[in-house]
């Protein structure tokens, strides 16, 4: 017990020597970065007041429901032993007021039922999980934060850079939004896409960052409709076509730029597609530029695409 406490005291002490100040003037952002001992920087997403208020309301609902059930039970019990029932009920009210959050957050890795539902978690500023002491600390100070109407807590949250209420500030904790852990999968549509015949390209090979951008874009393709998707991919498609001195169907680049970059992606993502690269003449700069002038906006918007058309060029 003591070991844990002195350890966290030392942490805060050593932290005080750094210039780390949550009130430091910085642009408002939900991103919170921590450098670990492995010198890798971890990013967390802070939870703002609105989502935390919702978690609070869910917890309040649960607490009220339990109180109601217990109250009814005690009323029945109260017929026989009125004072014992009242005493038990008051003990529950005490636990409800002072213990609910401290116990849940201390023993359930910084979450309460409400926080679980909203995907929130309390962690230490250093990225560690909180222990029972920190949970007790931040939730005892809740008494100050919550009177009246959580106004002190709200003001503290807006003044601190990490949305910390007074209890968070004293315990050195932050509330984060947990992101789902899922390995990004390649868009399924890529299976159906043919690589560009290498005869239509020159020796230019896009770097992996360009390919990664295309990959990211394609995996989020569903967020926009096809017209917008093509519109967004057009600058990149034209630039790539220019660098490749693309000799295939110019209509592909003009009308279906998203399909074009998808095909580029597929071509270069599979090593077997481009390792046997045939000989080409070196790229010359100006003749390709004239070939792929940006298409006027209306042309793209007027075209009516559907998925199969766009991807089975």
């Amino acid at each position: 017990m003591s070991g844990v406490l002195t350890e966290s005291a030392e942490q805060t002490r050593s932290e005080s020597q750094s210039t780390d100040n949550p009130f430091r003037n910085q642009p408002l952002s939900l991103d919170y970065a921590i450098e670990t001992p492995e010198t890798v920087v971890l990013h967390y997403q802070l939870a703002g007041p609105a989502v935390r208020m919702r978690a609070f309301l869910i917890d309040l609902l649960i607490r009220s429901a339990v109180t109601l059930i217990l109250g009814l039970l005690m009323m029945v019990l109260g017929v026989f032993i009125p004072d014992v029932a009242a005493g038990l009920f008051l003990i529950w009210m005490f636990v409800n007021g002072w213990g609910y959050y401290a116990i849940f957050e201390g023993l359930w890795r910084g979450t309460t039922p409400g926080k679980r539902v909203m995907g929130l978690r309390v962690i230490h500023e250093n990225g560690h999980p909180i222990n029972l002491w920190m949970a007790i600390n931040r939730n005892f100070i809740r008494a100050v934060d919550s009177t009246p109407l959580y106004l002190p807590g709200l003001i503290a949250m807006f003044c601190s850079r990490r949305f910390q209420r007074l209890g968070d500030l004293t315990a050195g904790t932050i509330v984060i939004t947990e992101r789902r852990v899922q390995l990004p999968r390649e868009p399924i549509i890529l299976e159906k896409i043919d690589p560009i015949p290498l005869a239509q390209l020159n020796k230019y090979k896009p770097d992996e960052q360009t390919l990664a951008v295309i990959g990211d874009f394609l995996s989020r393709r569903v967020a926009v409709d096809y017209k917008r998707g093509h519109e967004l991919s057009r600058p990149l498609a034209h630039e790539l076509a220019r660098k490749f001195q693309f000799r295939g169907d110019p209509e592909l680049v003009r009308k279906f730029p998203m399909a074009f970059i998808a095909r580029v992606y597929v071509t270069f993502l599979r090593p077997e597609n481009y390792q046997e690269h045939p000989e080409h003449e070196p790229p010359t700069e100006h003749d390709s530029e004239s070939e792929y002038e940006p298409v006027p906006e209306e042309n793209i918007l007027d075209d009516d695409f559907d998925e199969s058309e766009a991807y089975h060029e």
């Binding site: 009125p82 004072d83 009242a86 005493g87 008051l90 009210m93 005490f94």
Partner: peptide
């Protein structure tokens, strides 16, 4: 019973 009730009250 009355005392038990008071116990709860004192804690609360």
């Amino acid at each position: 019973q009355e005392r038990t009730g008071m116990f709860g009250f004192y804690i609360f």
